[in-house]
Simulated scan of single mutants.
Amino acid sequence: MEPLRVLELYSGIGGMHFALKDCGVAAQVVVAVDINTTANQIYQHNFPCTPLWSKSIEGIPLEDFNKLSIDAILMSPPCQPFTRLGLKRDVVDQRTKSFLYVLDLLPKLSSPPRYILLENVKGFEESCARNQLVKILTECGYHFKEMMVSPTSVGIPNSRLRYYLMARRSEEGLSADTHSKILETFPVHDDKDVLEQSAALCPRHTETGDGPECAQFLYKLETRAEQQRKQQQNSDQSITQIQDFLDPDVDLNLEQYLLLPKTLLRYAPILDIVHPTSRRSICFTKGYGRYVEGTGSVLQSSTEAETESVFRGLEEHSEEERLRRLQTLQLRYFTPREVANLMGFPQGFAFPDDVPVKQRYKVLGNSLNVVVVSKLLRILLSEEHLGR
């Protein structure tokens, strides 16, 4: 059987491509398309043999798409038009223009792709762009499923809830009667590995957690509900511990990743602190390493200092003493390699040496979880294409 011919739109640093390689399907990315120069540099570093078009999608004529004879489209359109911080301007946002162009092209293709997989942020499911997507897919004869899943669903200790749509232009496999319902679990599938991973969607919480995060954390600026949620997450034995995703060589450059004194003094009460034994971390965004609030968790490197003891009565001390106590925790940022690990990128993934750390965080924050997409591709692409 000939490999599937895949078009990768908004290719970024290659998350979709890595997922395709991991899912066991005989496939070839015939073209990747993106306008981000840094992301393209990283993509070409990892996939030097894949043609990469560094141009805007809406600048590519229909004729060029028809020449590709594609079987599948994988895409992760810009998410800013659908986020709260992006003002949710939806289809009037200029960054949605290329996606609307893709929707306009789809029914005009001489041979529309049999498969489509799309990823975007939570919020896309309520957008006009999503409504247009569903309308076009229906008119073009696609059956599809929509879902909201997080990497915790496959045992990864990172919360990154995302919208996914799988579409198949066939009478088989995907049922049309699920159009209106957005799933919160992976669809049932015959593949044993997928079913085992899907079982993780039913958390098996124990009565008490293990590790430092089961202490009372109300000394920080969080509600009791937030405290209980974190304890519950750390009690879920179906989630792997953070320590399995850490870089063993980070101690060689530890100073580079430690939080600066001014950051500790200003933001300590709102830091999301995790430990190597934790089974949770918050979503890493493109601002990680530059901004603190809501951009991702920080790791307590010290195994001797007690977090609760350090924070208890902290504001009663002088600035010098507060800093001394906070520094005993050895709080650090996750390295780009560690963030990539938590986002499911394989060990073979690498950054070119000349890409700065800040840029590495930025492109990772715009990427997707490779393991989640790999599982979805296994479901979307039927057994006839699996290399088994």
Rank of each mutant, 00 (worst) to 15 (best):
Y257A: 11
P157C: 06
E63D: 07
A200H: 10
K122R: 14
Q28A: 03
D64C: 09
H143P: 05
G313R: 02
I136P: 00
L265F: 06
E126M: 04
T303K: 07
K230N: 09
L74I: 12
G211S: 07
L252W: 01
G348S: 13
V102S: 02
R204C: 03
R130V: 01
S309D: 12
T83G: 03
R279M: 00
S374P: 06
R114D: 09
C23K: 03
P356G: 02
V6P: 04
K358L: 12
T152D: 07
Q347S: 14
T178Y: 11
S150H: 05
E184S: 11
P112F: 02
V339P: 00
V6N: 06
L161Y: 00
D353V: 10
L381C: 14
R325Q: 15
R168C: 15
L20C: 06
G348M: 07
P261E: 06
K220C: 07
T240P: 02
L265K: 02
N40L: 15
L103G: 00
C128I: 06
R279L: 00
S76I: 07
K145H: 12
S11G: 08
E184Q: 12
C23E: 06
S110H: 00
Q241N: 04
S302D: 15
T185L: 09
S54T: 15
G289D: 04
L380R: 11
A200F: 03
I182H: 09
R332E: 11
R95F: 01
C140R: 04
P346E: 10
A167V: 13
L117M: 14
F245E: 05
T277D: 13
M16C: 10
L246I: 13
T206K: 13
E213L: 11
L62Q: 04
R168Q: 04
E125T: 08
T96V: 13
P261M: 11
E222F: 01
D90S: 08
R229G: 05
G86A: 07
I42K: 02
L246V: 08
P261N: 07
D236Q: 09
R266I: 10
K362H: 13
G387S: 14
V92Q: 05
A72F: 11
P352K: 10
Y291D: 08
S76F: 09
G387Q: 15
T335W: 11
S111D: 13
W53D: 06
N131C: 04
K55H: 01
K362I: 08
E255Y: 03
E304A: 07
P352N: 14
P203D: 15
N120V: 05
Y115Q: 08
H317L: 15
A72Q: 05
F47Q: 06
V250M: 15
L246F: 01
A72K: 00
E119M: 08
G173P: 01
I57T: 03
P356E: 10
P61N: 08
L323R: 06
Y163D: 02
Q216A: 08
M343W: 13
K192E: 01
Q256S: 12
S198V: 06
R337L: 14
V31H: 02
D247L: 09
G289N: 06
S150E: 08
N253S: 14
Q231R: 05
L381H: 05
